[in-house]
Design a protein around this nucleic acid. Structure first.
Lengths: 161, 161
DNA sequence: ACGTAAGACGAGTAATTTAGTAGGGTATGA
DNA sequence: TCATACCCTACTAAATTACTCGTCTTACGT
């Protein structure tokens, strides 16, 4: 059930691009540096996103990556589908699936369908813009008060259990 | 984001036990045979479920596995947690996690929290009894009409796309 | 008492997936 | 024409997943 690091890195990169949407392309070294990961790895992920029509590129000096459309119009679902291949928790409830051959005897299928529909609901209805807004908001609120990283960012509020 | 086969087999076995709840232990060969998987593999899964207090065992001839409590009181969440280790989609939103160190700079955390809560909601609120009921109902409705497996079970209804 | 049906347990392995690296190629602005 | 930056393929290493095997223990039935 875990999300791959692929998805996490890729999604964060897209949010980074959303934050800078409209102000020209952002280079790979910049994006990779921001997350502290290798350029080679992130490049692969961005290529998938380009294939899927989520990002566009500008080659040559001063080039880089940028979002194709407004981040408010871009769902998390679309981004994660490209990065993960599919957001289905089991193959037989995948949108493109022909249904599994053992569906007739699968006692958990009703559960899987329900679970998948809830997941898709969240992912569809959440836009990249929202993530960017949440992030900026959070950063603003706690700026200069982070005792963990000491970089103007912020620790999670203590868990209330 | 995929569920492991571990979880799928284990969950189905638990539903099998639910269907027979109250009528004595069910042997491993029976459970494994029903799903067409090896006894050795399923045994491992059942061992985890025993450790977690979900199933109980009776050794010796006529022995086998049985549910500890009423399937109506047993959530899918509990079963999957034992099989998967955790149902968290990312470590930093796990119940036992201390929060991740990069939480302060993680732009996707709000999404992950929301997603996780929806998932937990479904898994908590669905009982094994419900799965068993759904299954029996489905089987009853379509019995003798399965053109795929020819075993009295049922193909998925044609997808409406 | 003994044979046999059953679970208990630990170790080991094969296959698959994921994560990440390496290195050469191509476009473009200054 | 050089430096910057994307493009692409291939490869490898690590981790996870999905198993298998062998031996041991328990307990029913005769």
């Amino acid at each position: 059930m875990k999300l791959s690091t692929r998805s996490k890195y890729g999604l964060k990169a897209v949010v980074d691009l959303a934050i800078r949407y409209g102000s020209g392309p952002v280079s790979l070294p910049t994006l990779a540096g921001e997350q502290g990961i290798s350029e080679g790895y992130l490049e692969q992920l961005l290529r998938e996103l380009k294939k899927g029509g989520v990002v566009d590129t500008v080659r040559g000096a001063q080039g880089g990556y940028e979002l194709v459309c407004n981040p408010a119009e871009l769902s998390v679902q679309r981004v994660l589908s490209l990065l993960e291949g599919s957001t289905a928790v089991v193959d037989c409830v995948d949108i493109d699936s022909r249904g599994c051959t053992s569906a007739c005897t699968c006692s958990a299928r009703p559960l899987f369908l329900k679970l998948q529909s809830r997941i898709n609901d969240v992912l569809e209805k959440t836009s990249i813009q929202e993530l960017a807004d949440d992030y900026l908001e959070q950063k603003k609120r706690y700026d200069k008060s982070c005792s963990v990283c000491g970089q103007g960012a912020v620790p999670v509020p203590a868990r209330t259990r």
